[in-house]
Simulated assay, not measured.
Amino acid sequence: MSPTDSADRTYDELVAEAAAVDVSGWDFSWLDGRATEARPSWGYQRLLHQRFTTTESVLDLQTGGGEVTAGAAPLPRTTVATESWRPNLAVATDTLGPLGGRVVEAPDEGPLPFEDAAFELVIARHPVVTPWAEVARVLRPGGAFVSQQVGPDSARELSEWFVGPWPDGPQARDPEVVRAAATAAGLDVVDLRLERLPMEFFDVGAVVYILRKCVWWVPDFDIARYDDRLRAMDAHIRQHGSFLAHSSRFLIEAHKG
């Protein structure tokens, strides 16, 4: 769908369509032509592909639907992924299973159901929380943790449209806070990079879809509850062509001595 096609449809049509879409997994292809987000310069999936060629065992934490790791195939000989949200478990198994991966249920904050020093590489894309002590435990000596994470103030403009101004102050997703946590777990941070990137939404349906999928941006999101703000968003997009927000991403690599 193009922005022009969206402009020809009513608010109710766009919202109803977005409300009916399956939002399990981490495949965002439904947004093609309806929203864009610039990608970080380091190319996380490309980095994984490069690492996989020299790695025998990898643990993918909080895999979602497994799409990101699958896109970096071929997978290492031993590839295991964890996921805590049950609707995603089946999706991830269908995605990674045919490629030789195994998916297990595990809580985001740990503990992880694996032996000490079980993996050469641990990866995580946009983890809800990083269980640093568990990461250090399951890594082999000389192993690496490579993760792309959501940084501070990500999608702030979008969230504030619905819930009002965010409070100022320290944020848990500050890269330096994360560096300190990794160091406290006994890991050596060898790379830490932060980028802030534009994201545009070209119709209100795209906004509904993303708020249903990324529930932490507006935790109490409900179409009826936020009908007035959604209609205001629809009017804004029709007037200006899009709604502009910014994502925040950082890359961290930490090694176990």
Results as ranks from 00 to 15, higher is better:
P3H: 12
T4E: 15
T4R: 13
R9C: 11
T10V: 08
L14Y: 11
L14E: 12
L14T: 05
V15G: 10
E17M: 07
A19S: 15
A19R: 06
A20I: 06
D22H: 09
S24D: 15
R34I: 01
E37K: 06
A38G: 07
P40R: 08
S41H: 07
G43S: 15
R46N: 12
L48A: 09
H49W: 01
Q50E: 14
Q50D: 15
T54W: 04
T54E: 15
E56P: 02
V58S: 04
L61E: 13
Q62I: 08
T63R: 12
E67D: 14
A73S: 15
A73P: 11
L75T: 07
R77H: 06
E83F: 06
L89S: 00
A90E: 03
V91P: 00
T95G: 04
G97C: 01
P98I: 00
P98V: 01
P98R: 00
L99S: 02
G101Y: 01
R102G: 00
V104F: 01
E105R: 04
A106T: 04
D108V: 05
D108K: 02
E109W: 03
P111Q: 03
L112K: 04
P113G: 05
E115S: 13
E115V: 02
E115W: 07
D116H: 09
A117C: 07
L121D: 10
L121C: 09
I123S: 13
A124H: 05
P127W: 05
V128D: 14
T130N: 14
E134A: 08
P141C: 10
P141F: 03
G143R: 02
F145L: 10
Q149A: 13
A155R: 06
E160S: 12
V163I: 14
P170Q: 13
P170F: 12
Q171N: 13
E176N: 11
R179E: 14
G186I: 04
G186Y: 03
L197A: 11
L197C: 08
P198Y: 07
E200L: 06
D203I: 01
D220Q: 09
M233N: 01
M233V: 01
D234Q: 01
R238G: 02
H240D: 05
S242R: 11
L244A: 13
L244E: 09
S248Q: 08
R249Q: 10
E253N: 06
H255T: 06
G257A: 13
